[in-house]
């Protein structure tokens, strides 16, 4: 059993009074990529936002990033405000990029720099295109370029955990490959919790997988095993949705 970087116990979260995450529990190992999977609208993004305190949440979220020792008792994140959580070394790449469109590429990156020694060269090497466009307003970048900028914003700091939400959403296949390359490079030094719909990317990057349905965790295990099991991928991820129909997905029925 490898060590853990984050444990989530009984996490519930609400948006506008509506329960979107319900009693979610899972672990994130301290190395490699862990995939957080599930159909649209099951609560993956809300889970990530709950961990970060971007939405109202309850439950225990414990982070073991403050020491390398085995006896790290961890720190509870669930009572802290977002900026404090992030300052502990958690990088966030939101769904839909959320770059600041009226700031330049360089300003977006400068804003994100938390460390005394930001990793500017590392980011420049990973995303040479961003260097060339440093004076361009982020709102005028293409979707793929915005995604690179959003990733670069997280990677410019030395993090202890990355939370990455659908980085390949809406991107052309070749760009999907580039994003996966960047993530693979990043994952060599930092554990990643990755929400991803593209199962090829999941297969390439992820070791473990957590599946959410109706705001609850319904499966955890090895990512490759899950993807190799047609029955499970169909049930959990609806890859062949038209062949399904027997999914126990009624979140309202299960209290």
């Amino acid at each position: 059993m490898s060590t853990l970087i984050l444990t989530v116990r009984g996490l519930s979260a609400k948006i506008a009074g509506q329960q979107v995450v319900e009693d979610v529990s899972f672990d994130v190992p301290s190395t490699g990529v862990t995939a957080l999977l599930g159909r649209n609208g099951v609560g993956k993004t809300s889970t990530i936002k709950g961990i970060l305190g971007l939405i109202e949440r309850r439950g225990e979220v414990t982070f073991y990033g403050d020491s390398d020792g085995d006896g790290d008792p961890g720190v509870r994140l669930d009572r802290q405000r977002t900026h404090r959580i992030v300052q502990r070394g958690i990088g966030y790449v939101p769904e839909d990029r959320e770059v600041f469109s009226k700031l330049t590429v360089a300003e977006n990156l400068r804003l994100a720099e938390r460390d005394a020694n930001p990793r500017r060269e590392f980011v420049a090497e990973l995303f040479p295109d961003l260097v060339a466009r440093s004076g361009q307003l982020a709102g005028t970048l293409s979707g793929g370029q915005q995604q690179m900028l959003s990733l670069a914003r997280a990677l410019i700091n030395t993090n202890r955990l990355l939370l990455v939400d659908e980085p390949t959403k809406g991107l052309a296949p070749i760009i999907v490959g580039e994003v996966a390359d960047a993530l693979e490079e990043a994952a060599k030094t930092v554990p990643v919790l990755l929400v991803e719909q593209n199962l090829q990317v999941v297969r390439r990057l992820a070791a473990g997988a957590i599946v959410i349905e109706g705001g609850r965790v319904v499966h955890t295990g090895d990512a490759t095993e899950l993807l190799d099991n047609d029955d499970m991928t169909r049930r959990f991820l609806g890859v062949h949705a038209e062949a399904g129909g027997q999914t126990p997905a009624d979140s309202e029925a299960t209290s």
């Binding site: 970060l52 900026h83 600041f100 700091n157």
Partner: peptide, 21 residues
């Protein structure tokens, strides 16, 4: 100034970059 300009556009993302807005 940078924080204010960014915050006018998307305040929660500013906090998600570790900044006390």
């Amino acid at each position: 100034g940078l924080i204010i300009r960014a915050g006018v556009e998307n305040r929660s993302m500013v906090t998600a970059l570790g900044i006390d807005v």
